[in-house]
Design a binder for these strands. Structure first.
Length: 353
DNA sequence: TCTTCTGGAGCGATTTAGTT
DNA sequence: AACTAAATCGCTCCAGAAGA
């Protein structure tokens, strides 16, 4: 090995903090060891323990690698569906870990990246009900149905704001802990510290973001539930055997015995074209009168979407002050397909009594 | 340029496996 | 047989890539 290669290898050693982190969370290619804090700490402390033994560096490394292999194999010995992925992981780890220093990097990843990350992610609420419920109720109490648009918007905004605030608190705290720890260790240079700290923030953001996606979807389901509940609107069960490409969360029965489906989404982005395959006649077959869509972000609601779904008795409830609502309700071809959100309850009541 | 598709991780509900 | 732990399923959203 040439001296420049040696140099670059030494410099790059800590970059593996990032790649180990990725490996440890991947559940398609590997087995997401990073989601099992007990296993992580078992691994880290076992490897540490061996390092303390008074034997040659090379023997220590061999011992550590074998221990790592044993712990992971033991953990997954009964999960037959994952043996392939376990093997792949052990294989790839074996390739990445070549020197005693690599083991140190791996231990640090387990102890100071994956474990705090797990904790920080767990501390973030996975739904934002608690942030919004009481405020939403106050709005409806005072403003009535005019407050409906506000409630939905507020629910979205406030919930997100609340959760984002928690995310900020978590990362600032965890980041500081890690920084202090790394600074204490004189063997870690400033550049290496950068590498490790950025890994941590990058991974945190990636995973917090995934959680955020789920949360955003869920909280909108909550808000429709809440509103229907508040106005004491009787829910019906979904028509049997009916399955649409767009998820419909709530159903109500009209006075003439038909059904109205209510779906609440941030956008109508997914699979809306397939919905067109479920033509209006299919809706009739299941005695579905309308599908109401409550959409909180409507900027991407193209004319195409509106008409295609609109002619099949889908009706869109948009925020009262929205640009798209103003445009569509003034348009001869679209005006029948959109309604302001504040009218939702009135419309429902008209259908049910 | 606008629309649609894809990849990725999290999470609750459901199913399966394992243990007393 | 009853319980519990683990695994799987089906769904969420968004950024960026690919397609029309």
């Amino acid at each position: 090995m040439k001296s420049t290669e040696v140099l670059s290898k030494i410099q790059n050693r800590w970059h593996n903090v990032y790649w180990f982190s990725r490996m440890l969370i991947n559940n398609d290619k590997y087995v997401a060891v990073g989601k099992e804090p007990r296993l992580l700490s078992t691994i880290a402390s076992s490897l540490r323990l061996i390092a303390k033994e008074n034997i040659s560096k090379q023997d220590t490394l061999i011992l550590q690698k074998q221990t790592l292999r044993n712990i992971i194999e033991e953990r997954y010995k009964r999960t037959s569906s994952r043996t392939g992925r376990v093997k792949k992981m052990l294989n790839d780890l074996d390739k990445e870990i070549q020197t005693p220093e690599d083991i140190d990097v791996f231990i640090l990843t387990c102890e100071n990246i994956m474990l705090p990350l797990y904790q920080a992610i767990a501390n973030i609420p996975s739904d934002d009900k608690e942030f919004t419920l009481s405020i939403a109720k106050a709005y409806l109490d005072i403003q009535g149905e005019d407050g409906l648009a506000t409630v939905i918007k507020l629910w979205d905004d406030l919930g997100v704001k609340g959760c984002l605030t928690v995310e900020r608190t978590e990362i600032v705290r965890a980041f500081a802990t890690l920084r202090v720890l790394l600074t204490k260790d004189k063997s870690i240079t400033e550049e290496e510290r950068d590498i490790i700290l950025t890994t941590f923030t990058q991974e945190f953001e990636r995973r917090a973001g995934q959680k955020r996606k789920k949360r955003a979807g869920g909280s909108l389901e909550d808000v429709t539930d809440f509103i229907l509940e508040y106005y004491k609107i009787k829910r019906a069960t979904a028509p049997e055997h009916f399955q649409a490409d767009i998820e419909v969360d709530n159903w109500i029965k009209t006075k003439d015995g038909w059904m109205i489906g209510i779906s609440c989404k941030r956008t109508i982005r997914e699979r809306w074209k397939q919905v067109s395959s479920a033509e209006a006649s299919v809706l009739s077959k299941f005695k579905i009168k309308y599908i109401y869509h409550i959409v909180t972000y409507d900027e991407d609601l193209s004319d195409d979407k509106l008409t295609l779904l609109g002619i099949q008795r889908h009706i869109f409830y948009l925020p009262d002050n929205s640009r798209r609502l103003k445009y569509a309700s003034g348009h001869v071809g679209l005006k029948d397909y959109v309604r302001p959100i504040s009218q939702l309850i009135k419309d429902i009541k008209k259908q049910t009594s």
